[in-house]
């Protein structure tokens, strides 16, 4: 098992290198001098050309591009993403503050996705050809298609503005510091409720559909007929014989859903003023804060790779047919 994990890790090294490279070159695609971007916010102040030269040196922009590239790779390897144009602080610190918030949001959304998605998918499949199945199938298609930001606004309008059940934004209440441990925890959950719901519900709809189809596919397998022919109860047939087989590929699906969640989280975080990576990126794009954009984009991609890796390892662990020695064929 450990060997398998190490092997998979080594296999992702070129991918990671590709990601870091791509980020660098996309950022350098920008028409004109990168320094312009840095200066733009302060253009009103008419910066002294000498200062510009100094800045150029400081950010290494006076070097030829391949030297810059090597420097970038080296720095990333050390976890150094430079200094934010805007905040004048190391990007690493800024991002490090944001990532946990994003993880809280996405992991909870993933849980919601799994909980609702899988159970509704199972219900739908077991009740195939009934009204309930039809409703769930069409309903999940519809939910899947609703744009998150609009859903978020409508929920805010209903539950926060009109009913006052949930906060409109922020991560904590005013009196957060006075609360007990449990109180703090509940307060955080209370603030997470709407954003997690909006972020997770689309995924849940997708999972439900996938789970349904997967389970139906498995229920058509001969070993299901065989299990029935041995006299097991229908419940046993579904729970024991079908479900396990149907659930295994779901693991891979979850690995694949991470980029969608991270992408969706950008807008949701912005709407709910949730201080995660997404909001940071959106603000950085608005303010042309390149080091931050490059850092968050790279990290988002790395998280995706990590997610896929976790999915593959989990898959190998739950499916007896995967041997750890050979990399799984795609």
């Amino acid at each position: 098992m450990l060997k398998y994990i190490i092997k998979r890790l080594l296999l992702s090294v070129p991918l990671v290198l590709g990601i870091v490279t791509a980020t660098f070159f996309i950022a350098r695609l920008a028409p004109g001098d990168p320094m312009d971007m840095y200066l733009e916010p302060q253009r009103q102040r008419q910066v002294d050309p000498e200062v510009i030269e100094l800045m150029r040196k400081r950010y290494g922009l006076d070097q030829p591009i391949h030297v810059q590239y090597v420097t970038w790779i080296k720095n990333v390897a050390r976890g150094d993403f430079g200094e934010s144009f805007r905040h004048r602080r190391p990007v690493r610190d800024i991002v490090a503050e944001a990532v946990p918030y994003t993880l809280q949001l996405t992991i909870l959304a993933l849980l919601l996705d799994a909980l609702f998605g899988i159970s509704l998918g199972i219900i739908s499949a077991v009740k195939q050809y009934t009204k309930l199945d039809k409703t769930l199938t069409v309903g999940s298609l519809i939910v899947y298609a609703i744009p998150g930001f609009w859903l978020a606004l409508m929920l805010i309008m209903l539950f926060s503005v009109n009913l006052g059940w949930f906060p409109t934004s922020q991560t904590r209440s005013m009196n957060y510091e006075d609360l007990t441990m449990i109180g703090k925890f509940l307060d955080r959950l209370w603030h997470l409720a709407l954003p997690v719901f909006v972020l997770g519900i689309a995924g849940a709809a997708g999972t439900a559909r996938y789970m349904r189809n997967r389970l139906l596919e498995v229920l058509n397998e001969e070993y299901i007929v065989a299990a029935r022919a041995r006299g097991f109860r229908e419940r046993t047939v579904i729970v024991k014989h079908a479900l396990r087989n149907a659930l295994i590929p779901i693991v891979t699906i979850y690995g694949m859903s991470l980029p969608f969640l991270l992408g969706g989280a950008t807008i949701i975080e912005t709407i709910f003023a949730w201080p995660g990576m997404g909001r940071l990126t959106v603000a950085a794009v608005g303010g042309r804060d390149y080091p931050i954009i490059m850092a968050t984009t790279t990290i988002a991609a790395l998280l995706t790779v990590l997610g896929n890796l976790l999915a593959d390892v989990t898959y190998a662990a739950v499916d007896p047919r995967v041997s750890y020695d050979a990399p799984r064929k795609r």
Partner: peptide
């Protein structure tokens, strides 16, 4: 296909954000 692998590893929306930031 290795290029595609790298491209797909990026969350699409992040790539879009980065590109609208650049252009």
């Amino acid at each position: 296909m290795r290029i595609v692998d790298v491209w797909i590893a990026f969350p699409t929306f992040y790539l879009m954000l980065m590109l609208v930031g650049v252009f």
